[in-house]
Amino acid sequence: MTLIDQIRDVFLTELGIPEEEFAPTLAYGAIPEWDSASHMVIVTALEERFGIMFESDELVELSTVARIEEALKAKGVEDGGAA
């Protein structure tokens, strides 16, 4: 599973959104389901899935799917698995 597939999996599971709404450009606040409350749910799910931890300053920077992907790669997460 590629990294973006895994991120998609987290978004579809945690937000309950249909697949067509997911895209690298999807941004925090752009859909009702991704709000301040669910943001933390997504972050927690990503942290658990990849066995990593975001710094508090990083958490508010994770405002698009593309930025989440970048941040995960910066933490050494690669396609197919944990950091």
């Binding site: 606040g29 709000d35 301040s36 508010v60």
Partner: peptide
């Protein structure tokens, strides 16, 4: 704004 709500403390 909606985007600023992500970090109410900030």
């Amino acid at each position: 704004t909606e985007a600023e709500l992500i970090d109410p403390v900030g």
